[in-house]
Design a protein around this nucleic acid. Structure first.
Length: 835
RNA sequence: GUGGACGUGGCGAAAUUGGUAGACGCAGCAGACUUAAAAUCUGCUUUCCUCUAUGGAAGUGCGGGUUCGAGCCCCGCCGUCCGCACCA
């Protein structure tokens, strides 16, 4: 037997065998219970990142365990292959986005395959291929027909140099991240998906997602931002018009001392046309930074319009109207009433402009004047006429009822969530299947004419959207009237691609997006795993698409992901030379507990473990690591030490330790072939406790604990003398490590002389009889302090046990002659003598 | 500002959810094997006190509380990290 585990040979051998046997193909028609395990598919940036390795290893452990437990497992992989980086590569290096993307996919696929994941590669998909995005166009048209898609003019971030719309994330300090040009706000006609139609559903649906992290549910809840309140109309004094305001605190209406509209409010814009001072104030508000620090420090400022509004509950009260920099045009109605006593922003504003601060809510007995802090707590209404004495909730209801009956306002529900603008002035995305005709308007491309395929011959030499600049692609005849018309040249946001790929994995017919009955058989995804950075965008969009498809009858599930797990990052310590330059891990070495530069031997400062980034040079290359240590050691390390939801610090010594573990297990397996016999009852107990523990740990996604238990089992086996039980334990060990170290498990399984493959063997089941101890250790406390402990049989009689404990030397000494006045006995666990 | 999570040895972490704190791994120390090193194996490894023991004391960010008993529950602080950010 080979002394060392030959990881290269084992990987090559077993990966080929699994592939040939189709071991991980999912069968739609299987009678077994189904399990759908999915990790967020990668963007093909070029190389696999170590974070991918951790993510996919966790998914693989679950997939392999479920499969061994008798489930028909769907565990697919694909590529989120549309997006900006491909176009950037085209602009920078002259390579076609498609060629660049497909080459990246090829190399990343090879990297993933080296790791031996139990993936059904027959279902591989790539969103940039027409067979995928063409079906997405069909779904878009279905949603359009169902009234879930509309077109409207809206403000966008426009980069005047690159001639394109930028996402908010691509605007840094007000400048385009590529061009460095000052970004303009421009109004453009954009396609929108009506996600707000589903705001309530998406919010209420979170309640049912028990297997999602609390944190993610909370983030989505806040993002949707449902609030209920009163929307009412302020009539402008001495004029015929007015404006609407929204408030969540209608109870405080008698505390109003002013009203404000946003700088972009139509009333403000109209007045500014004949008032240059006002116009310049509005311009200043617009220029104000939206950066986080700015907002915190920005002073509340206003511009008195000279107008006033009539208080809806008492026409004799008039309130001055300001244009204010802190009122947002795109929330509510873009206008508010100011109640300084009970809103901090309003209070700051009132103090600056010397406006009155009437208190209208007070906690029991406290009617002191408001000083620097607005009172936002509970209490009863004061100084509010017919509302006096009511609680806040009663007063809210009373004002809403009055507004409704008098016709000047109504109860409304307001959301932070906006409709999803999906138009992008980009080449590398799904073409929006619409044709603009002067006669017929926006006409859907007939389904028979799908897919609308991206033209290959595009140029990136000129800034702007290559589709718009293409000489012929956009010129088509109108499908309705036949006249010359223009193709929509915007493409869909890449987040649409990832909003339904999990359905396409489950079912991918050639002539439809998916087959409903097949998709319903697999969905929802039982366990979805990915980074928390997608807590809002992707995970909300995917929930929306699934609900939209359910509403139009395309699918029978409304939530795509029954279970969600967000894993932590892989971090690495950073190294800095004496001169302050970042150093790569390969450029430093450890000597006598300190770090030095390999070249030159200069002293190196070690920084704390943080997210791997190219700029800090603390990245590690999975390929190099795989070559040195092998897939199983890398996988094992990815699961060790840190709880999966927390960050894992990559370290040389850590991966060394994982490698040692692989060798130890291999040594056990390769030497297990002896014909030892006989029963080792102690080892069997340890084995069955390990089976039960590992199974439970994997079930709860506590991989680090499963790893620790397997170390304990290996330690116990190594210490045990040869016996039949020991051989049995080693055999079962192969099955228990198989989800984490699949090549090692197969190699060991074969070395022991077992037939078939470890991956096809049933998951071991613990014998309950071997999980119970007949001997227990009883801790003995005197006044709550541990003084002694002893081994005894399980289920001892209390009085007898007490007598035995009291007779023990240490107990006698600790009691110093006193008689305990109370004896607390926790069966099989502890005796506490209180004296 | 606001919402949330977390705080345990030199480090990553466990602790059956109120019952022997520190499992397991890393690092470290000592020893075995070796001409030597690597690899491997065997011990030790929370801190402090008298290394004599089947010894004692302290100990889970800090200060209180509940309890026979608190890492875990309650109250008040401090710190770190993450999300959101003038949402009316």
């Amino acid at each position: 037997m080979a002394a060392k585990f030959d990881h290269e040979g084992a990987e090559r051998r077993w990966q080929a065998i699994w592939e040939k046997a189709g071991s991980f193909r999912a069968d739609d028609l299987s009678p077994k219970p189904k399990a759908y395990v999915l990790e967020m598919f990668p963007y093909p940036s070029g190389r696999i990142h170590i974070g991918h390795v951790r993510n996919y290893t966790m998914g693989d452990v679950i997939a392999r365990t479920r499969r061994a437990q008798g489930f028909e497992v769907l565990h697919p992989m694909g590529w989120d292959s549309f997006g900006m980086p491909a176009e950037n590569a085209a602009m920078e290096r002259g390579v076609h986005p498609g060629d660049w993307t497909r080459a990246n996919i090829a190399s990343m696929k090879a990297q993933l395959q080296r790791l031996g994941f139990a993936l059904d590669w027959s279902r591989e998909l790539s969103t940039c291929e027409p067979d995928y995005y063409g079906q997405e166009q069909a779904l878009f048209l279905d949603m359009l027909a169902a009234g879930l898609v509309y077109r409207k003019e809206s403000a966008v971030n426009w980069d005047p140099v690159d001639q394109t719309v930028l996402a908010n994330e691509q605007v840094i300090d007000g400048r385009g991240w590529r061009s460095g040009a000052l970004v303009e706000r421009r109004r453009l006609s954009q396609w929108f998906l009506k996600i707000t139609d589903f705001a309530d559903e998406l919010l209420d649906g979170l309640q049912g997602l028990a297997d999602w992290p609390e944190k993610v549910r909370l983030m989505q809840e806040n993002w949707i931002g449902r609030s209920t309140g009163l929307r009412f109309r302020f009539a402008l004094a001495d004029r015929d018009d007015g404006f609407d305001v929204f408030t969540t605190r209608p109870d405080t209406l008698f505390g109003a001392s002013f009203a404000c509209v946003a700088a972009e409010h139509p009333l403000a814009l109209a007045m500014a046309e004949s008032d240059t001072a006002m116009a310049s104030f509005i311009a200043e508000c617009r220029a104000g930074g939206t950066a986080t620090a700015d907002i915190e420090t920005q002073e509340k400022r206003g511009f008195d319009t000279g107008l006033s509004v009539v208080h809806p509950l008492d026409p004799t009260i008039r309130l001055p109207v300001f244009i204010a920099n802190f009122v947002l045009m795109d929330y509510g109605t873009g206008a508010i009433f100011g109640c300084p006593a009970h809103d901090q922003r309003d209070l700051d504003f009132a103090r600056k402009y010397a406006l009155p601060v009437p208190r209208v809510v007070a906690p029991e007995g406290d009617v002191s004047a408001i000083q620097d802090d607005a009172y936002v707590g509970p209490g009863r209404l004061v100084n509010s006429r017919f509302l006096d004495g009511m609680t806040v909730d009663e007063a809210k209801a009373a004002v809403i009822a009055r507004a409704a009956s008098e016709g000047w306002g109504e109860a409304v529900t307001q959301y932070r969530l906006r409709d999803w603008g999906v138009s992008r002035q980009r080449y590398w995305g799904t073409p929006i299947p619409i044709i603009h005709c002067e006669n017929c308007g926006a006409v859907p491309v007939p389904k028979a004419a799908l897919p609308v395929v991206l033209p290959e011959d595009v140029s990136f030499d000129v800034p702007g959207n290559p589709l718009d600049l293409h000489p012929s692609w956009k010129h088509v005849d109108c499908p309705a009237c036949g006249k010359a018309a223009r193709r929509e040249t915007d493409t869909l946001d890449t987040f649409t691609n990832s909003s339904w790929y999990f359905i396409r994995f489950a079912s991918a017919p050639e002539d439809a997006p998916f087959d409903r009955s097949v998709a319903d058989g697999w969905l929802p995804v039982d366990q979805y795993i990915g980074g928390v950075e997608h807590a809002i965008l992707h995970l909300l969009y995917a929930r929306f698409w699934t609900r939209a498809l359910a509403r139009i009858g395309r699918i029978g599930v409304s939530e795509p992901f029954a279970g969600l797990f967000t894993q932590g990052m892989v971090t690495h310590e950073t190294y800095k030379s004496a001169a302050g330059a970042w150093l790569e891990p390969g450029a430093v070495e450890r000597r006598d507990g300190a770090m030095f530069e390999r070249a030159g031997g200069g002293a190196v400062t070690i920084g704390r473990a943080e997210k791997m980034s190219k700029s800090k040079k603390n990245t590690i290359d999975p390929d190099a690591i795989l070559g040195t240590y092998g897939a199983d050691a890398v996988r094992w390390f990815m699961l060790s030490d840190s709880p999966p939801e927390r960050d894992l610090a990559w370290s040389e010594s850590g991966i060394d330790g994982a490698w040692r573990f692989v060798q130890r297990v291999w040594r056990l397996a390769s030497e297990a072939g002896s014909d030892a016999s006989g029963v080792d009852a102690t080892l069997l107990k340890t084995l069955h406790k390990a089976i039960a523990g590992v199974t439970e740990d994997i079930d709860r996604l506590q991989f680090n604990k499963a790893v620790a238990r397997l170390y304990e089992l290996v330690n116990a086996i190594e210490r045990a003398a040869a016996s039949g039980s020991r051989t049995e334990a080693i055999t079962v060990l192969m099955l228990l490590v198989a989800p984490m170290c699949p090549h090692l498990a197969e190699e060991g399984w074969a070395a022991i002389g077992m037939t078939g493959m470890a991956c096809d063997a049933d998951w071991p089941v613990a014998d309950p009889a071997l999980l119970v101890d007949d001997q227990v250790t009883i801790a003995i406390q005197v006044n709550g302090k541990l003084r002694d402990s002893f081994e005894t049989g399980k289920g001892r009689d209390r009085a007898e046990l007490e007598a035995e404990v009291l007779a023990r030397d240490k107990v006698v000494r600790a009691l110093e002659g006193r008689t305990p006045r109370k004896v607390i006995i926790v069966p099989d666990r502890l005796v506490n003598l209180v004296g």
